[in-house]
Amino acid sequence: MNCIEVKNVTKYFGKLCTLDNVSLQFEENKIYGLLGRNGAGKSTLFNIISNRIFATSGKVLLDGENIINNDDTSGKIFLMNDKNQYSNTMKIKTIFKWMKAFYPDFDEDYANQLSKDFSLDTNKYVKSLSTGYISIFNLILALSVNTPYLLLDEPVLGLDANHRDMFYRILLQKYSEKPCTIIISTHLIDEISSLLENIIIIDQGIIMKIESLEQLLSQYYTISGNASSIDTYLKDKQVLGTETLGGLKTAYVLGPVDQKVPYNLAVSTLDLQKLFIQLTNKEEGLR
């Protein structure tokens, strides 16, 4: 079966538990959003899936094969993050040449074309690049490797609005022409939500949600109106959180919208970012 299976993965750093018995499966050729607050365990999960660090217990299977020290599986998966893991003594164009040795389907011409599009000078050394251009360099590698699995950890870090826009379009073009499984972690949820098909929410090392974006959003709604009517309405409801502005109150509610909403209250849907904030707020909300 073509998929990534994470089975009961737990990771401790010293006494700190970063992933707590995580099990999930990434289906083939879908775009996933891996969302979590700072320190939730996103990068740890990415590093374990791509065999850069080892899990304390549990295992990861890629197309049914264990990924630990497995050359076959490591050539099928590419992790992009903001770390510079390439030689500082090589020019970018030389790195492009070498990529083929590790990823046979790496498209050097395409990488050079993208470098032109993003105005990245391939005669430079990676260490001399700015934060934004290190991201761009890493993105170009990710877009050119042509592996069936692509993990993007904060892909747009430090990119200006124009370059982010370009990246989203190029990624979709690439994905349409040659579908692969893409997992993106980002804090810019509003910007990326329309690209995503499935959502994973991770909180304090535990998987909180894994489902399609549409399904996830359909389970919640917001209701607003004057505070006293809202309070009456909410009595038998499961409330994620509320916001008050003068006499106005907005509540985020779990469950289908019931038919008997009072006429003076307005119902609307939640977007992914609002829902994420409500679900992962430490102060209040359902856990």
Partner: peptide
Amino acid sequence: SVNYKINP
């Protein structure tokens, strides 16, 4: 998809 930046 590309023009509106939405999932295909």
